[in-house]
């Protein structure tokens, strides 16, 4: 910084607000996250109506009952049910702009997974688009959804709207 810049009047004040938490995932999410660490996607089935929650929080928000049955292993591919193109930079998101934030309905699941789209132009992203997960190299895996780097188009025909309209 030059001497003249240093002497400019102070016009802006940085006033960050910082809250430090220790987040505890709980049993159900811990199991789900540990499965990610093994490259598996685990959902859970509601005992009342059989809907498959992914990720599961251990209880069904619709029926208010615990979800305790065997986990349901899901494939790492599905359908984009909705998306949003992001053109605004953010300090904590390390992605090249613009990118598409997508909501993916995995095949066999009844709830959606929030992720990003890669290997595709934002001009091509659309509802019903078939996508598959692109994983990080296994040596970089953690107990984290970030083991999936992004989803990319599979090139399969689109899923008809009627098949996912209940899941948007």
């Amino acid at each position: 910084m030059s001497e003249s810049e240093e002497r400019k009047p102070v016009e802006v004040l940085r006033t960050p607000v910082v809250l430090d938490y220790t987040y505890s995932a709980g049993q159900s999410s811990s199991r789900h996250l540990r499965a990610f660490g093994k490259g598996k996607l685990l959902g859970q089935r509601c005992p009342v109506d059989g809907r498959v929650y992914f990720p599961s929080r251990g209880s069904c928000p619709q029926h208010g009952v615990p979800i305790e049955g065997e986990p349901v292993e899901l494939p790492d591919r599905g359908t984009i049910v909705t998306y949003s193109v992001n053109r605004v930079p953010s300090e904590n998101i390390d992605l090249e702009l613009p990118y598409a934030a997508i909501q993916v309905l995995l095949d066999g699941a009844d709830t959606i997974l929030f992720h990003v789209l890669g290997e595709s132009s934002i001009d091509d992203v659309h509802m019903g688009m078939r996508v598959e997960a692109v994983w990080k190299p296994e040596e970089e895996w953690d107990d984290s959804v970030a083991n999936i780097r992004y989803f990319r188009p599979t090139g399969e025909p689109d899923t008809p709207f009627d098949q996912y309209k209940e899941h948007i």
Binding site: R14, Y21, G26
Partner: peptide, 15 residues
């Protein structure tokens, strides 16, 4: 199972 925990910082970088 033991619950996973992680540090989580919520920060607003106001100016």
């Amino acid at each position: 199972t033991h619950s996973l925990t992680a540090a989580h910082q919520l920060a607003y970088t106001y100016k």
